[in-house]
Simulated assay, not measured.
Amino acid sequence: MFKQRLVTGLLLAGVAFAAILGLPNIAFGIFVLVTFLIGADEWARLTGGHTPLIRLAYVAVVAVVAGLAWGLAEHGDVRLPILIGVIWWLAATVLLLVYSPNRPLDVIGGMRMVMRLAVLPSLVPAWLAIVWLQRYDPWLLVFLVVLAAVGDSAAYLAGKRFGRHRMAPRLSPGKTWEGLMGEMLMSLLLAIAGAWHFVADDVWLRMGFVGLCLLTVLASVVGDLFESLLKRLAGAKDSGSLLPGHGGVLDRFDSHLAVAPVFLMGWLWLRGSGL
Rank of each mutant, 00 (worst) to 15 (best):
A126Y: 02
R55V: 10
R55G: 09
L141M: 08
V114H: 11
L120M: 10
E183Q: 13
V124S: 02
A148H: 02
E74T: 11
V107L: 13
V119P: 03
V86M: 04
R45G: 07
I84L: 13
M113E: 12
A154C: 13
A168D: 03
L117E: 11
S122G: 13
Y99C: 11
A60C: 10
Y156I: 03
A63L: 12
L56F: 07
L96N: 05
D77A: 14
G163R: 01
G48Y: 10
G110D: 05
Q134V: 02
R55Q: 10
V86E: 05
Y136T: 15
G110P: 04
L72K: 09
V98F: 10
P52G: 06
G67I: 07
D152K: 09
Y156S: 00
V62G: 02
W88G: 00
A154W: 06
A118E: 04
L53T: 08
R164M: 08
V64C: 13
R166T: 08
R170W: 15
F143A: 06
R45N: 04
V124T: 00
V119C: 12
T47V: 05
A91S: 15
G48H: 04
L96M: 04
A69V: 08
P173T: 05
G49H: 01
M115P: 03
G48D: 07
V131P: 01
L95M: 15
G85E: 00
L83D: 08
G109Y: 05
H50E: 15
W139G: 04
D152C: 05
G163I: 06
M115K: 03
L144Y: 05
T93I: 06
V65K: 04
L140D: 03
Y58I: 00
V119S: 11
L68W: 15
P101L: 08
V64A: 11
A69H: 00
R45F: 02
R135V: 09
A57N: 09
L97P: 07
L120W: 02
V62T: 09
L123T: 02
L133Q: 01
L157F: 14
M111E: 09
I108K: 11
R79M: 05
D137P: 13
L133M: 07
V131M: 09
A118Q: 07
A168F: 10
V107Q: 13
Q134A: 08
R116K: 14
L95A: 12
R45C: 10
P121I: 04
M167H: 04
A92G: 09
A158R: 00
R116I: 15
V62P: 00
D152E: 04
M111H: 04
L144H: 05
F143L: 13
V61T: 08
P169R: 12
G76E: 05
L141D: 00
L140P: 07
F162G: 02
A148I: 05
R135G: 15
W70Q: 11
R112N: 07
I130S: 02
L72M: 11
A126N: 04
A63T: 00
P173L: 08
A66E: 03
V131F: 01
H165G: 03
V119K: 02
V64T: 11
V78N: 01
R164E: 08
R103I: 07
A60K: 06
I82V: 14
